[in-house]
């Protein structure tokens, strides 16, 4: 999952606006059940892709983008800008993936497929979705 996602994020981030990664995350969440490990790999791929692409582009601009932008937002070291990019990529995809999973769950309930939880279920879905793993109140 990680390398597949990394390839997709790396290939498309350059040519599409940033929010496509969210759409992609949402779509993945909506169509494909993901466990927390898979979800983590998926979001990490986005993080690595964004940080790496930013690093490459910064290199092409003689390191000036990271230098100026870190000064602008008050980061103590220019390299931290890539950590920020990774964080932004991770969170954007994470939130959208979660929403996709939730929507998938809602649709599953609506169609009342045998394996999908009913609207009255108090349990998380059987596929151990990322939505229920790290943040559940259980």
């Amino acid at each position: 999952m990680f390398f597949f996602s990394l390839a997709i994020f790396a290939a498309l981030s350059w040519n599409l606006p940033w929010w496509w990664a969210g759409v992609f995350g949402f779509a993945m969440g909506a169509v494909r059940p993901m466990g927390w490990r898979e979800g983590l790999a998926f979001c990490s791929a986005a993080a690595v892709a964004w940080a790496a692409l930013a690093y490459v582009q910064d290199g092409r601009n003689f390191g000036l983008i990271s230098q100026r932008m870190s000064g602008l937002i008050g980061l103590p070291h220019p390299l931290l800008i890539f950590a920020l990019m990774a964080g932004l990529g991770f969170l954007t995809v994470f939130f959208c993936l979660q929403s996709g999973q939730v929507v998938r769950g809602l649709f599953s309930m609506a169609t009342k497929t045998p394996n999908s939880p009913s609207l009255n279920d108090t349990n998380p879905p059987a596929d151990e979705s990322l939505a229920s793993s790290g943040t559940s109140s259980r």
Partner: peptide, 17 residues
Amino acid sequence: MTWRRWAILWIPLTVLW
């Protein structure tokens, strides 16, 4: 937590983000 509650949490959070 029900899916409806998850929806109440994640979808607004995503939109806000």
